[in-house]
Design a protein around this nucleic acid. Structure first.
Lengths: 240, 240
DNA sequence: CGGATGCTTGAGGTCTATCAAAGCGAGTGG
DNA sequence: CCACTCGCTTTGATAGACCTCAAGCATCCG
């Protein structure tokens, strides 16, 4: 990991403060949070933030850019299990055993706010809203994971890809970005790994969705042309 | 939900205290925990503990019996996403939004220790080890979910079933039960839902594993005959 | 410019879902 | 206590979705 200290900035003024940790904190509480984020890191594409087995030292908020996380099981299989963008928090997998189980790697140049575990712990003893917030983020993560399992277990390739697109769109929307224009930072292969598909299938399905005018796709640039149409793809075969 | 108050019992003397919440607490801390568990519930088979949409009022430790949890997405698809046995904690999905996202239903007659949210929160402000413990449990849950995604996305039917068996065996082992003799409390259909397979496939694969003498199976009674063989099935196709 | 990496497209094969029917077992009611 | 039913399980035949393998093309980067 390549670390660069960057000028201290304010959580209060960060345009992400609605989606990052401060979510439901008042000004006073955010002020306390600030004392936690003493370090910010710049990552270049392919730099890792942490790897499986690394000591759990901090949790991380993405200030800009994007990160993929992956897991390897005992059998040596690797799967990407998350793509994270601006305002999202990663590193929570480390709480269980004090070691990370996931790898976290930058998909592009990325800025990270570091919240060190030690300070997090001493702080959150005095400062309950923070601990509650962390708990809520973890619980959200559990809900997200459960939905992912549903996807992997029960959907066909078209449904998976349509759901994936919709999900990214929703998350962009939450951050007040244009939610119809998506730049795919990951490769087809990485999308496939995430969705339990091969890169060829990803490529074919994207083509098909484009052929029926639900999206347009040019390399990494994806436009959603028909939100309702995408929903219908996701809901196919339901309530027959 | 059918509630029965049962005689107050001691967490300290509970034979589960090594795997339930008290895991890493000292005697004094366990004593504090006890004041939290004021209610215990008996569920009969098919009774639900909570349903998706229910207010999040408590988290639950399974004292005996077993529980399945399931999730339904907007598209109306339902999937079982967890089987929980003695000593395990459920209900953590409620922290995010203060509503449960999962359904929790008893697979057999089951005893539950109830830890009410209100008391949990007021208690854990004064009582840090508890909050840390909850955090650790949630993080474990995240790790578990990630492994499940790996399974659903990348494994074939044989690998899924072998992994499932191994996983249950490990959990029984942790509780000092005979880890080679497993009583499957769920139906083939429920196993299938959990693993992303149909009941027919589950049935066929169990038969196959039995035919090659890795297990023996008679209705719900499963015996592991060859632990190493099971591992080999899981690791098939790796490092070719 | 050349090599590496990623993307697309095609042909063929395999795994697992689907559909169907019969066997089994637990629980119910006569 | 037995007969019956309903739900679960097993087994077979078939079909289709997706993977695998392969080749050609585009893009990126030193």
């Amino acid at each position: 990991m390549i670390e660069h200290k960057v000028a201290q900035e304010s959580c209060k003024n960060c345009h992400l403060n609605e989606v990052c940790i401060p979510e439901s904190m008042n000004d006073h509480e955010v002020a306390q949070l600030e004392t936690l984020v003493k370090l910010r890191i710049k990552l270049k594409k392919k730099d890792f933030l942490f790897l499986a087995g690394d000591d759990f030292k901090a949790i991380y908020a993405i200030k800009s850019g994007s990160i993929k996380t992956s897991i390897t099981n005992q059998a040596g299989m690797e799967q990407i299990n998350g793509f994270f963008i601006q305002g999202e928090i990663i590193g929570l997998d480390g709480f269980a055993t004090d070691k990370h189980v996931l790898n976290a790697i930058a998909l592009e140049d990325t800025h990270i706010c570091v919240i060190k575990k030690d300070e997090l712990e001493s702080m959150s003893e005095k400062f309950i809203p923070l601990k509650n917030q962390i708990q809520r983020i973890m619980s959200k993560e559990i809900v997200r994971d459960n939905n992912m399992m549903l996807l992997l277990g029960n959907m066909n390739a078209e449904q998976k890809i349509a759901t994936f697109i919709q999900n990214i769109s929703n998350r962009l929307n939450k951050r007040h970005n244009n939610h119809l224009a998506i730049t795919l930072r990951m490769t087809r292969e990485e999308m496939g790994s995430y969705l339990g598909l091969t890169n060829e299938t990803v490529s074919r399905v994207l083509k098909k969705l484009s052929d029926i005018n639900l999206i347009s796709i040019d390399a990494k640039e994806l436009l959603i042309l028909d939100e309702d149409g995408l929903k219908q793809v996701i809901h196919q075969d339901c309530n027959p």
